[in-house]
Design a protein around this nucleic acid. Structure first.
Lengths: 158, 158
DNA sequence: GTTGAAAAGTGCTGCGA
DNA sequence: TCGCAGCACTTTTCAAC
């Protein structure tokens, strides 16, 4: 066996079109996608299974409107660490703060970059002053409050 | 009628628990959620309809792994505008660049803040130099490349 | 690898409590 | 307002092309 099962390691155009449909609406019936692409429902299923096995599909999320759920404020946080080596510790602590919804280890002036969601300004202040600042190794932070989220989408494949 | 239909405007604990389940996996069967919460499947359905009508539920997305789909680089962009009034124009132009997956109008030193996803460093350079810099009104940008996404999740309700 | 249909499971809509 | 039961639909599987 000179070559591995290469058929499972490639993503063709059909896969991309199926994914594009489902990335917009994860509950879209396979049969409807099949109709759109003029293939059978079984094929959609086989492709999806392949993509799942490959690990490309991580799952599906219900998207809620944070504002209507009472979470009015989205903010970004540029975080300066005392030492870069404290990164792992900081991640561990920050992951326990549920308001932190994203955390990146970045190049540039900041050591880390976080996205947080809060109910209101009071909640934000509490998270910043009590929760974030208490994390060991964090020297100081810079806050960017999002006044408007103008674009929010997933990458377009292909 | 002194009071409005308050029953439809409130989110109780049951709603939150249902949402929490579905936010992690949008394809989770209602019957299974019902079993977990020791209620009937019909109740789950009624609650979900209420939440949909309220507009809290915006839809569902299939989550893919950008890295495995060939998109290796996530970067954040601090954008300086020549004039704040150019914001609307800039949004319109940036929304046409598919690599821009998020765009916020923010407080702080930047006028706007964007998140972009690219295939590789060449792709990133192309997007930055050819696409972003070509947008009218953008003075300069600061790039923060994400070397590692340590946390990625949705807000926890309740 | 794809198709088309049969089998199993899920979502939806009444009625009753 | 909630829970149960029947109907319609989707997902899944499988034999055949």
């Amino acid at each position: 066996m000179l070559k591995k099962e290469t058929q499972n390691l490639e993503i063709d155009n059909l896969d991309i079109q199926i994914l594009t449909h489902l990335m917009q609406d994860a509950t879209k019936p396979y049969t409807e996608i099949a109709k759109d692409l003029i293939i059978s429902g079984g094929t959609v299923h086989v492709r999806m299974k392949k993509l799942s096995d490959m690990g490309i599909i991580k799952g599906s999320h219900l998207i809620i409107d944070p504002k209507k759920a009472g979470y009015d404020i989205t903010a970004f946080l540029g975080i300066y660490l005392e030492k870069g080596s404290l990164y792992k510790d900081a991640v561990e602590h920050l992951s326990k703060i549920k308001e932190v919804v994203e955390l990146h280890y970045t190049t540039g002036s900041y050591s880390m970059f976080a996205k947080i969601t809060c109910r209101d300004t009071n909640h934000l202040r509490h998270v910043l002053n009590e929760e974030i600042q208490a994390v060991k190794g964090i020297q100081r932070t810079e806050t960017l409050i999002s006044l408007e989220e103008s674009i929010k989408r997933q990458i377009e494949l292909g």
